[in-house]
Amino acid sequence: MKTLTKRFMTLLAGLTLALASLTPAQAADEGAKVVYHVDFNDPTRYSATLTSINNILNFYESELMEAEVHLVFVGYGLRFTTNDDLKGTPYEADKALLERREELKGRLQSLIKVRGVKVHLCDKTRDEVGLSKDKVYDGIQLTPSGVAKIAILQSEGFAYLKIQ
């Protein structure tokens, strides 16, 4: 009986160690990498994107997981990266954007500075309309091609998300 109990306890200890090595943080590390794509002009949809980023970061933190989140702006997304009204361009600021610009800018800056989100703007889009680099919000990195940046991140295991 003593030998049986000893074997059972050894098996139980081994099983406990094996299960402990499969913590949620380790099992999901590869899944804690996300890239969001913004190529649209709707401020409400963009606001939903910022909310989604905050929500996913909150979830990962609640699970004690490290997360890496990137946000890539392409085309119409340029509107959300500057205070310039982009007059005479396809991306010109409209009333809906002008009413929410400061709020959206503040939320983006908070994600960059407080939550560590890495933000990229397609330099091809910026250059296309002649927007000076110094008019792009602080904390936004320029990338030669936004879609290429997204493809590279996906090849590195980042999940692709785009709010509809």
Rank of each mutant, 00 (worst) to 15 (best):
T3P: 00
K6D: 15
F8V: 03
L12M: 07
T16Q: 10
A18H: 04
A20E: 04
S21T: 09
D29Y: 03
E30V: 01
E30I: 04
E30Y: 03
G31F: 15
A32W: 05
A32Y: 06
V34K: 07
D39I: 06
D42S: 07
D42M: 06
T51N: 12
N58F: 11
F59S: 14
Y60M: 14
E61C: 06
E61T: 13
E61D: 15
S62T: 15
L64G: 11
A67W: 11
E68W: 04
E68V: 08
V69M: 00
V72P: 00
F73K: 02
F73H: 12
G75P: 09
F80K: 03
T81S: 00
N83M: 13
K87Q: 12
G88C: 02
T89I: 04
Y91H: 01
E92Q: 10
D94T: 07
A96N: 10
A96V: 08
L97G: 07
L97F: 09
L97Y: 10
E99M: 03
E103G: 04
G106R: 10
R107H: 10
R107K: 14
R115Y: 12
G116L: 12
V119E: 06
H120W: 10
L121Q: 01
D123I: 02
D123N: 04
D127S: 02
K133P: 09
D134L: 10
V136R: 09
G139A: 07
I140C: 03
P144F: 04
A148N: 03
I150A: 01
S155Y: 01
F158S: 06
F158A: 04
L161Y: 07
